[in-house]
Design a protein around this nucleic acid. Structure first.
Lengths: 323, 323
DNA sequence: TTGTAAGCGTTATCAA
DNA sequence: TTGATAACGCTTACAA
């Protein structure tokens, strides 16, 4: 009865193929030319021994890379419930995947700093602090921050929050609106910038309250607010999902949108549960993801990577009208 | 001018602290007792040298573990757009995180099989095949399959698709419905089971078509179908999101739900964009996630892990009524 | 094109 | 409680 068999290693394969360890390594990695016949022999030996390729743990140590990029998104169900997060995540995953890199989910509370990552992305969290940041710096792990706070040494990918918010506010002002309210996100860099843009036009804009980019939450917030007959003619939301919640709640109370109340969003995502098109600030979600992933690749390669600021544009839909 | 300085290692710390390499290792890992004073000295030396703790790459090789669990979810934006996926993902991430394990996203197309993972979860994909599976088996990576096809050697976590679907069908039959249609998911184990449950009661149920668990997609499907005046009194969907799409489309066409058309879903998630409560089959999403994560932990520990079958229950809401 | 040899930075075994 | 030493399995100069 054979004891617990040691796993097959590249050395075993090399021996079976009658070549040296380094040649066997080259046959798998292709990092240097190997004669076709030799490679055949190595691969055949590997197949015969049931060898599934170089142990990634060993190869990682040797190369000093894990092939994994961490992404901090806060609580998963919160982050991914927002449809704006997904096209971006897709783009990141696609670009990194093409480069052979995997994506590791990091909570922002946790101990994942102990896991080996080649770089980290801080995104979606909508927070100003990240416990793991100092650890990453100490480990020399490059960090790319998306719409986040400014930390020394990180690379930034951002969008024109303030300009977009201001353009939207102007649109409402042009329509004759003078008293507007806003539903905000959690305190964060993005929220502050957008609020600044809104106040460039409506210095007195009233804050309804803050909630996540979640339809039910926005609806609940709107329910309380609208019940008080607040006397505003427009509500500016910080996401399309929030805006959808406000529209649904306004209608439930018998208000016509935009006849009695104009509602605007942010992001430019599809809102199939509404039968109108939201007036919103469209941001280039996939571009943002690609830019983020490319910044990551650059930083891993040791390059100097410039910060990125992406443009947004106002899309006028059917949810806003004359005051 | 100092050259490119080699990174500080545990050996450097040990030397600076005047202890042996193994003692320094113990001071960090706590795997064996170390006197308090010695540990102090080691930690102080580490701080002085800017040492951020043992290199995880080296530690991984030595221990033969990466501390990472892969999760295959197909295309990210598709998988995560389904609200049913999120509570489950949260639970997985929480249980694994508590055990110090990270979660690596694996597309089902990609080369992530080369990344070092201690176990893999196959979930949400709604597919029958997975290119990476053979690789994982060859590497002896344990696999936990959620609602998926049966592969030799994997551990299964599943729910009572068929029983739930049948209970729902009975409910409709009791209400007098005789001609029903169903919106299906992609061909998959879950879909086949649920369809079987439906056909236990309605052998002739008509298939409207298949789509992802996506509101817009279901709405489009329903638009075509309802335009043809199909003469059914109930539509059974395979997710609550699909059901919401059908409800919205039915109303758009002037049909009352459930007066003119009964609509049922599956999952039991919140549907804030509807003002009625769906009749649905509630599945224990968080339990499913926890069971999955615990199966993963068991398999990593080398234990024999039993398959898990979780119960579902019918929840009668306001979206179904007499035929 | 192939072989030799030197690590990569830990952790675990064993003895002191 | 601490210390010496041997792996873990691979990649890459360098030499042939």
């Amino acid at each position: 009865m054979p004891g617990p068999t040691r796993a097959t290693t590249l050395a075993d394969v090399a021996a079976a193929a009658g070549v040296s360890l380094s040649t066997a390594s080259l046959a798998f990695s292709g990092n240097k030319p190997v004669s076709a016949s030799t490679r055949e022999r190595v691969l055949a030996a590997a197949a015969a021994l049931g060898y599934a390729g170089p142990n990634p743990l060993a190869s990682n140590l040797r190369r000093g890379r894990s092939g994994v990029v961490g992404i901090a998104v806060g609580q998963l169900s919160t982050a991914f419930r927002d449809p704006a997060a997904l096209p971006m995540l897709d783009a990141i995953s696609q670009v990194l995947g093409a480069a052979g890199l995997g994506l590791l989910l990091m909570g922002d509370d946790d101990e994942h700093a102990r896991l080996p990552i080649d770089a980290a992305i801080y995104d979606i969290c909508g927070r100003d602090s990240w416990a793991a940041y100092d650890d990453l710096v100490a480990r020399d792990v490059p960090v790319v921050v998306v719409e986040g706070p400014t930390w020394p040494g990180a690379t930034y990918v951002d969008i024109e929050h303030r300009r977009g918010a201001k353009a939207l506010a102007k649109h409402l002002h042009d329509l004759g609106h003078r008293r507007v309210a806003t539903v905000t996100l959690a305190a964060s860099h993005a929220q502050r910038e957008r609020e600044a843009g809104l106040r460039d036009v409506f210095p007195d804009a009233h804050v309804v309250g803050a909630c996540a980019s979640d339809l039910g939450a926005a609806q609940a917030l709107a329910a309380d607010y609208l019940a008080g007959d607040p006397g505003v003619s427009a509500v500016v939301c910080q996401s399309d999902v929030q805006a959808a919640g406000v529209v649904l709640e306004a209608r439930r109370r018998g208000l016509r949108v935009p006849g009695d109340l104009s509602v605007a969003g942010f992001d430019g995502v599809a809102t199939p549960w509404l039968d109108l098109e939201l007036t919103t600030v469209v941001q280039p979600l996939a571009d943002k993801g690609r830019a983020t992933a490319e910044a990551v690749l650059g930083r891993i390669a040791g390059a100097d990577v410039a910060d990125v600021l992406l443009p947004v544009r106002l899309r006028v839909g059917d949810s806003t009208g004359p005051a």
